[in-house]
Write a protein that binds this DNA or RNA. Structure first.
Lengths: 224, 224
DNA sequence: CGGTATCTTGACGGATCCTTAACGCCGGTG
DNA sequence: CACCGGCGTTAAGGATCCGTCAAGATACCG
């Protein structure tokens, strides 16, 4: 769910945009002026910014330049001014697109899609590290002592579930029903086999596991 | 010096754009219709495309889609049509910007700068190298032992997808749906055949692949 | 219209993975 | 101390998946 920051001093337009964008699956934040826009962007970095040029407190271009000092998020500029010089200034100040009011919502949405299509994936590649091995959830690689470890699909599913909830206790039923499906919630045998295989591949001392811990009678837990 | 391909059926506009763009330091190629545009783009991949929607031989959107099959260069669409639906269609077909005729040259140039600012540097070598072969993503050329390797379009699509994500595991569904389309997500047979062909052309020991690795039950992975 | 390159489809042996069962260990319980 | 349930380990069978090959279908080009 991409986060969009909408900056405009017209409350009606702000409300309309918020509703429309949220209806299309975006997470929306709004700001009525430049100062609060920069504050909001710092507090919760957006994936895209819709910026009106006519703000009460500061020049839109100034907001743009300030934002560009640290953010590379795409910026779509709204403006009531049709002049060529205004467009050139905004685009050269770091804006990625420029449309004039009044505009069609469909066009705005299409331009947002085009901009987001280009944007580098803000989706971070989480990689969990322990003293003995590292799990790269993005690349789907497990490394131990510098060498990559071969995991079967089932082994990976279990490890991923545990690693995505570090320190948290996952019940056997949870593992079984997410990996094999709800119908297999009673097959605790499977788990014993696969946990053993994971330990053999990842733990130094399989007898005394340090990261893949078992809670007798309940489930398992991953300790970083 | 970035290469720009300008596609328009109006000779006067073509000439004016060529002169203006060259004056601003771009290298310009022109095409009067869709067919020759695709040909020119294949022969000399441009860093950006300016595309008129009203072409004599084929629909502009069709040219766009065909181009997008292999090129990720930014596309700026020109059109005489102001309708919202036209803009949405073009943008969703893969265009990055859309301006209506008549337009100001200054605005066009500013929008080109904004697009090129985002585009991955074609100047830097988008070429991936392994111990045994090199893949030039810009020129669409694969070299092995100093000799260029002939790849079919399908082979190239698969290799490109894998090479653009080095070390990352790509599932069979991902490959099938990006290369053949989402409807073919179940045809794992195709993959087996084409992966075998790629290995025969690129790997020294087909039985022990060193770069095109298979992850049983999941997908494939490219190791640099 | 003929020829070439490419894509699709099917079949087979071999490798990998999942399932299942059996056995030993440990801690708790009566 | 004997019993028992839960867990770890191992290995064998069967199911699934993969690599390979080749023939037929299709698209492309002169």
């Amino acid at each position: 769910m991409t986060g969009i920051l909408v900056v405009d001093d017209d409350p009606h337009l702000l409300k309309a945009l918020r509703i429309t964008l949220q209806a299309h699956g975006y997470s929306v934040e709004t700001a009525p002026d430049g100062r609060s826009a920069l504050l909001a962007a710092t507090r919760n970095p957006p994936g895209l910014v819709v910026l009106d040029l006519g703000l009460p407190d500061m020049d839109g271009a100034a907001v743009l330049r300030e934002l560009r000092r640290w953010s590379s998020a795409p910026v779509l500029v709204l403006s009531a001014r049709h002049g060529s010089a205004d467009k050139v200034d905004a685009l050269d100040a770091g804006a990625d697109d420029y449309i004039t009011k009044p505009f069609g919502l469909e066009e705005l949405l299409a331009r947002l899609r085009a901009l987001l299509r280009r944007a580098p994936d803000t989706a971070e590649a989480p990689t969990v590290t322990t003293a003995e091995f590292t799990v790269d959830l993005g690349q789907r690689v497990v490394t131990r002592n510098g060498e990559s470890v071969r995991l079967t699909p089932t082994e990976w599913s279990i490890l991923e579930l545990l690693v995505r909830n570090p320190g948290k206790l996952i019940t056997q039923q949870q593992i079984l029903s997410t990996v094999w499906g709800p119908a297999y919630a009673k097959e605790a045998n499977y788990l014993r086999v696969y946990i053993a295989q994971l330990r053999r591949k990842l733990e130094a001392d399989t007898g005394n596991p340090r990261h893949l811990l078992t809670e007798a009678g309940i489930g398992y837990r991953f300790r970083p």
